[in-house]
Nucleic acid binder design. Structure first.
Length: 193
DNA sequence: ATAGAGATTGCCT
DNA sequence: GGCAATCTCTATA
């Protein structure tokens, strides 16, 4: 596996997830690139989730078979199955043993557009290809088999290509949750990259 | 054992 | 805007 060509000096920095909580890391992920299978998406929407102090988090009640990678080493993927249908991808943060992760909620395709369209037949508009956590995973072909894999070692890569740095972001409550709405832990890119 | 909610999506009216 | 699809986990018995 290798990082797709055409994105400048691709660089992975797994070290920056160690010891940093999800709500600190989350805005930094905006503008970064997530790649798998030769397909790439520039991240435009993220949400942070904590552990025992965050009632909206999968980690709130401790580790289970499903969420165990959320408690594992940072810099890896936490991929979970939701509503019996969809996969969602997170970047594990914090320290091993505690739950902390950033849900990748949306992005724009920057590489492999034709293949991404084939994988997202329901998307009628370009913007509907990856504007949701389940859609983004379907577009990139991310599923449970990739849960726990290292984002600095592939086959799924997270890196800063230098083209999407420091996008302006809007900060809002998280989507689709009924607890913990007081925290403004969702960040959305407000400028087209 | 069973019921209900959930970090969603797409198709229906 | 309503709702079905149908996996994982929690609460209750």
């Amino acid at each position: 596996m290798s990082i797709p060509a055409g994105h400048g000096a691709a660089e992975t920095r797994p070290g920056e997830f160690y010891g940093r909580q999800a709500h600190e890391v989350a805005p930094d992920l905006l503008g970064m690139v997530l790649s798998h299978d030769g397909l790439s998406v520039r991240i435009s929407e993220v949400e942070a989730y904590g552990g025992e102090d965050d009632p909206a988090s999968h980690g709130y009640r401790g580790p289970t078979r499903r969420n165990r990678s959320m408690f594992g080493p940072p810099g890896r993927l936490y991929v979970y199955f939701i509503y019996g249908m969809h996969w969602c991808a997170n970047v594990v943060c914090g320290s091993e043993g505690e739950a902390s992760a950033v849900l990748i909620r949306g992005g724009t395709a920057v590489c492999g557009l034709d293949e991404i369209r084939r994988r997202r037949p329901a998307a009628r508009r370009e913007r509907d290809l990856c504007n949701g956590p389940g859609k983004l995973c379907a577009a990139l072909g991310i599923d449970g088999s990739l849960d726990g894999t290292d984002l600095g070692a592939g086959p799924v890569w997270l890196y800063d290509d230098g083209y999407g740095a420091r996008p302006t972001a809007e900060r809002t409550p998280r989507i689709g949750i009924s607890h913990g709405r007081d925290r403004l832990w969702r960040w959305v890119t407000t400028v087209e990259l």
